[in-house]
Computed example of a mutant assay.
Amino acid sequence: MAAFVTKRLALALLVAIFVSSISFSLMFLTGDPAIAIAGEGATEADIEVIRRTFGFDRSFAVQYWDWISGAASGDFGQSFYFNQPVVELLAERMPVTATLAVFSIGFALLLALPLGILAAVKRNSLADRLSLALATVGQATPSFWLALMLIVLFAVNLRWLPVSGADTLAHFILPSIVLGYYASPSMMRLTRGGMIEALRSDYIRTARAKGMLPRTIILKHALRNAVLPVVSVAAVEFGFILGGSVVVESVFSLRGIGYLAWESIGRNDFPTIQAIILVYAMIYVCLTFLADVLNAWIDPRIRVA
């Protein structure tokens, strides 16, 4: 197990270094960042002052080293637009996005696992077809459209839930349903496929021959093997929810990291954009690493291979 964890950790570090270089390079892909910061009508003298002030006149390697060494210590620089340390902006907005992501992945699992198990146990039945149809609709429905429909129904017409803000947990119900429903189809299909394969296995037939209860066979034996790919996908979907919350946060006026990214892109706030990309990438790498370790712990065959 230690060797497996060491190999996965080394791979995660290599990915982190590669992603950090890409995220830093994005600032230079659109041209000279000093010109973008100066804006229209700026003179050459103004651009040169900005270039010297922010250190854009130095070599790329020197700029990257200063940035990555500062980021390693929690210093992402100063926001151009908000005029405050980027780390403070992230600390203010991250709790909103993290709460939204946890609720969303929780709703997705609560929806996907039971439906996947039901579809596998009742294969080719009406329940199976309805579950697959629900998954197809969830993957095809635009998140912004579903968000607007839920607002109209539950906030405007029924007045059960608040429309916007993040003051209470009730404010996260509708956006969590939107993101969770969009993330559930892949997990539901994997659960169904894994359960169908597991229920055909010899050890399941042996368990049935011993007279075990169907509930014990399904939940204790079959589900343990069927859930392995779901763990990996859930980690990936959690990362996608964190990075893809821009639209939902905008619709529900949740001032999280996604909304901050939208604001920063529209205002050429490069330090904030770089920090958000790097933080999201590191979260994604960590989640993937933890999913690999958890899968290896659940199924010893993985770490032996």
Rank of each mutant, 00 (worst) to 15 (best):
R255N: 14
L294T: 15
A98V: 15
A72Y: 04
L29E: 01
L110I: 13
E237Q: 15
S21A: 15
A12T: 11
S176K: 06
D75I: 11
L228S: 05
I265P: 01
N268A: 13
E237Y: 04
R8F: 08
Y284D: 00
Y259Q: 13
E48R: 12
D75T: 09
L287P: 04
L219M: 11
V248F: 02
I241A: 02
V15Y: 02
V62N: 03
A291G: 03
G266L: 11
V304Q: 12
G244I: 12
T216F: 06
H221A: 02
A38Y: 10
L179H: 03
A61L: 15
R123V: 03
R267G: 00
S73W: 12
P214Y: 11
R93D: 00
A91P: 00
A112Q: 04
D128N: 05
C286I: 15
Y181F: 15
I17Y: 05
F154S: 02
L213H: 14
P142A: 09
L134G: 14
D299V: 06
S176W: 05
E48F: 04
V152S: 05
V87C: 00
L146S: 05
D66E: 13
F154K: 07
M212N: 12
I273E: 02
L179I: 07
P229Y: 11
A108V: 05
G70F: 07
I273G: 02
G256C: 06
I68M: 08
T206P: 00
V178Y: 04
G31Y: 10
N124Q: 13
F80Y: 15
M94A: 15
I302F: 07
S245R: 09
S69D: 01
S176T: 04
L90F: 11
Y259F: 14
M212H: 14
M27A: 13
F54W: 14
N225K: 11
Y181P: 00
P33Q: 05
A209T: 12
A207L: 05
A2C: 00
N225A: 13
W67N: 01
S73E: 11
S23D: 11
I117N: 03
F24Q: 10
A140Q: 05
L158H: 02
I204N: 06
P271H: 07
R192I: 03
N124S: 11
A234Q: 05
V121A: 02
L26I: 15
F54S: 01
L89G: 06
R8S: 01
G258V: 10
G39V: 12
V86F: 08
F289R: 04
F54D: 01
Q139L: 14
G106T: 13
V178I: 07
A112G: 05
A42R: 08
L290C: 12
P214I: 09
F107N: 01
Y280W: 08
G256A: 08
I302V: 14
D66N: 13
F144S: 02
P85S: 06
L26A: 12
L169E: 01
S253A: 15
G194I: 12
R301Y: 04
L89C: 09
S176I: 08
V251M: 07
G116P: 04
L100R: 08
A34H: 04
A101M: 14
D32E: 10
L134I: 14
V102I: 15
D299K: 09
G74K: 11
I204V: 15
L150N: 03
Y280I: 13
T53D: 10
I17T: 08
K210M: 13
V248K: 04
L158N: 01
V178R: 06
S253T: 13
